[in-house]
Computed example of a mutant assay.
Amino acid sequence: MSLALSVLDLVPVRSGQSSAQAIAASMSLAQRADRLGFARYWFAEHHNMPAVASTNPPVLVAAAAALTERIRVGSGGVMLPNHAPLVVAEQFAAIEAMAPGRVDLGIGRAPGSDPVISQLLRLSGTTSDVDRFPDHIADIRSLLSPEGANLRLTSGREYAITATPAATGTPEVWLLGSSDYSARLAAAEGLPYVFANHFSGQGLERALELYRSEFAPGALEAPKTFLTANVVVAPTAAEAERRALPQMRTMARLRLGLPLRGLETVDEAEADAAARTNSAMDELVAAQRQAWFIGDPADVASRLRAFAERHGVEEIMLSPVAAAFADEPLDAAPGREQTLELLADAIG
């Protein structure tokens, strides 16, 4: 089967690396994905995490759009409870004007951080609360359209609002989620939908079944979805396993409520694992290992094809979670670049 590949980037920050170096590495990776023929490149939204620099998807999407030529760029996603709908619409209308016809606006309902950070993000007075999520999705779609939207003032007068004064196109709006809620909302509105399989891993089959069975034509005539997956590919399976270890340990720390820090290098992760015994972390790492796609190019390509066929999709968005060795350059991501290159060649 023909299988399209895309990228989800959290802009990982390794120990000893600055945000500037991490972002430079991600921009280089976006350009590499563009040249390799990947379908789209999305940036996530996370806050106050030492190992993640993707705090502001619109800024990163705009930067990637300016550096690429054909690949679709977008958010995976903008966490709407943190933002006023008009601001989101204006940001992505501007990016659409910069890169016409290749912008995706993926929107999520979760805050993307802890309650303290969520409260700080809302100090500006945004009313984009979770309970009004469906209304704000509708608002954003209306504001992004060339016709704009009309607000009825208390005086009864209609007030016209547009996200940009002379739109010639609109970003494609996607709903993202890891529960039934977004699957059902996307189905009801006829919108494209993605389940956060790379993060959750539980409930994928149910979410896809709900989305497809309840889909009503709206923005789309038929359901549109793809799969996400954590992927590490290297010339040998042994190298891939080593490069996967730091990110698996970071995810285990997050789930165990342990203090977070910059992403370990492979050298640091192996040394710490050898020096300490933490059965809870080891169990979580082993569980993640079963769900991630780690190995040599032929093995991972084969398993991704089977994964896509099993769930009836023609695209997989991979989160390239290969970590770096200590002696690799700080302003590049050789392991992540290698994952994209080897997999693109193996998929063909």
Results as ranks from 00 to 15, higher is better:
residue 2 S to K: 13
residue 2 S to G: 09
residue 5 L to P: 00
residue 6 S to R: 02
residue 10 L to P: 08
residue 11 V to Q: 01
residue 13 V to D: 00
residue 19 S to I: 14
residue 22 A to H: 01
residue 27 M to G: 12
residue 30 A to Y: 03
residue 34 D to N: 07
residue 35 R to I: 10
residue 38 F to G: 03
residue 40 R to H: 11
residue 40 R to E: 03
residue 44 A to S: 13
residue 45 E to Q: 11
residue 51 A to N: 10
residue 58 P to D: 03
residue 61 V to P: 00
residue 65 A to K: 00
residue 69 E to M: 10
residue 71 I to D: 01
residue 72 R to W: 06
residue 88 V to W: 04
residue 89 A to Q: 06
residue 92 F to Q: 00
residue 94 A to T: 14
residue 95 I to K: 00
residue 98 M to C: 11
residue 98 M to P: 11
residue 99 A to F: 08
residue 107 I to C: 04
residue 111 P to N: 10
residue 112 G to I: 02
residue 114 D to F: 10
residue 115 P to L: 10
residue 118 S to H: 10
residue 119 Q to A: 15
residue 125 G to P: 10
residue 125 G to F: 06
residue 126 T to L: 03
residue 128 S to L: 04
residue 129 D to H: 12
residue 131 D to F: 09
residue 134 P to K: 02
residue 136 H to D: 15
residue 138 A to V: 12
residue 138 A to T: 12
residue 139 D to K: 09
residue 142 S to G: 15
residue 142 S to D: 15
residue 154 T to E: 15
residue 161 I to S: 01
residue 163 A to S: 10
residue 170 T to E: 14
residue 186 A to I: 04
residue 186 A to Q: 05
residue 191 L to E: 08
residue 191 L to K: 05
residue 192 P to Y: 05
residue 194 V to I: 14
residue 194 V to D: 05
residue 202 Q to S: 14
residue 202 Q to M: 09
residue 202 Q to V: 14
residue 203 G to L: 02
residue 204 L to W: 02
residue 210 L to Q: 01
residue 211 Y to H: 00
residue 212 R to M: 04
residue 214 E to G: 02
residue 215 F to P: 01
residue 222 A to C: 08
residue 228 T to A: 03
residue 229 A to G: 01
residue 230 N to A: 12
residue 231 V to I: 09
residue 232 V to L: 04
residue 234 A to N: 06
residue 236 T to R: 04
residue 237 A to T: 13
residue 237 A to F: 05
residue 238 A to Q: 12
residue 242 R to M: 07
residue 244 A to Y: 04
residue 245 L to T: 06
residue 247 Q to Y: 15
residue 251 M to Q: 13
residue 254 L to H: 13
residue 255 R to N: 09
residue 257 G to W: 06
residue 261 R to A: 15
residue 264 E to A: 14
residue 264 E to C: 11
residue 271 A to H: 10
residue 274 A to F: 03
residue 275 A to S: 12
residue 282 D to W: 01
residue 284 L to K: 02
residue 285 V to S: 06
residue 287 A to F: 06
residue 294 I to L: 10
residue 298 A to F: 07
residue 298 A to E: 15
residue 299 D to S: 15
residue 301 A to N: 03
residue 305 R to V: 07
residue 308 A to W: 02
residue 309 E to G: 07
residue 311 H to Y: 14
residue 318 L to T: 00
residue 319 S to C: 13
residue 325 F to R: 14
residue 325 F to V: 11
residue 327 D to S: 14
residue 328 E to R: 04
residue 328 E to P: 09
residue 329 P to N: 05
residue 335 G to N: 06
residue 336 R to F: 07
residue 339 T to R: 01
residue 340 L to N: 05
residue 343 L to Q: 05
residue 348 G to W: 02
